[in-house]
Simulated scan of single mutants.
Amino acid sequence: MKCLIIEDNEFLREALMMFLRGVAESETAGDGREGVDRFTAALRQGHPFDLVLLDIVMPEMDGMQALRLMRQAEKEEGSPGRKSVIIMTTSLNSPANMEEAMWDGDCTDYLVKPVARADLMAMLHRHGLL
């Protein structure tokens, strides 16, 4: 599985990479703009990410903006009918934010921080990635 972790907090990026060690080839980005660029480049090269872990609150470009741009890139650059599993990560336990991400942004699922490895693995199983 190929994974992109988009998270501005270096400690959390490293923790997520450690959680996925042995189950995913992970790349990272420190903000939404860099994440969208990596995501789009992978689509263009024909090697899209299977999984994206996307923080909502980040500098430069927030996760909601990045989510919309990644879904748009999939429509324009990707294979028809194929979408990456995009899991939003947030410390904001806000139903309004999650509703916006799920319905308006077309994210696959979300995890509230701090993310536990067991919760992440269960979610990957649920979405057929493990």
Rank of each mutant, 00 (worst) to 15 (best):
Q65L: 02
A101P: 03
E25V: 13
T89L: 15
L12Q: 13
G78C: 06
L92D: 07
K2C: 00
M70D: 00
L69P: 06
S94F: 05
A24T: 07
K113L: 08
S26D: 10
V57A: 10
I86Y: 01
T28L: 09
E34G: 06
C107D: 02
D31V: 07
V85R: 11
R13H: 00
L43F: 02
M64N: 01
E99N: 12
A29L: 04
M88N: 05
E25K: 09
A101M: 03
H125V: 13
G22E: 04
E34H: 00
I6A: 07
R82C: 01
Q72W: 00
R71H: 09
G63V: 13
P114K: 11
L12I: 15
D104I: 06
L51M: 10
K113C: 07
N9G: 07
G22C: 13
A73G: 09
S84P: 03
R44E: 11
E34K: 06
A41R: 05
M121Q: 02
P48G: 12
F39I: 02
H125D: 14
A116T: 05
A101W: 06
E60Y: 04
A41Q: 05
T108D: 05
D31S: 13
D37F: 01
P95T: 11
Q45K: 11
D8M: 11
T108E: 04
L129T: 12
D62R: 07
P48Q: 10
I5D: 05
L130W: 01
G35L: 06
E76R: 03
S26H: 02
Q72I: 05
G81K: 06
L111D: 10
L120T: 07
V112D: 04
D119L: 04
A116D: 10
Q72R: 14
S79Q: 10
W103K: 11
K83P: 00
E7Q: 08
A15N: 02
D8N: 15
L69M: 15
M17Q: 15
P114M: 09
D31K: 00
K2E: 12
A96L: 14
N97Q: 11
G81L: 12
L51K: 03
R71A: 09
L4S: 13
T89M: 12
R13I: 02
F49I: 03
D62C: 09
T40A: 04
L54S: 07
M123E: 09
A66F: 04
M121P: 11
D104H: 11
Y110P: 04
R21F: 09
L43P: 04
A116C: 04
I87T: 14
S94V: 03
S91E: 08
A101F: 01
K2H: 07
D8V: 14
T89V: 15
C3G: 08
L53K: 05
R21S: 14
Q65D: 13
A29D: 03
L130M: 13
I5A: 02
E99P: 02
E60K: 08
D109K: 00
R68W: 01
K75M: 04
E10T: 12
S26V: 15
L120V: 08
H125I: 08
I86S: 02
R21H: 15
L111W: 04
H127V: 11
Y110I: 04
A73F: 09
M18W: 13
G35M: 07
E100D: 10
D109R: 06
R117G: 12
L124E: 06
M58T: 14
A24P: 08
G46T: 12
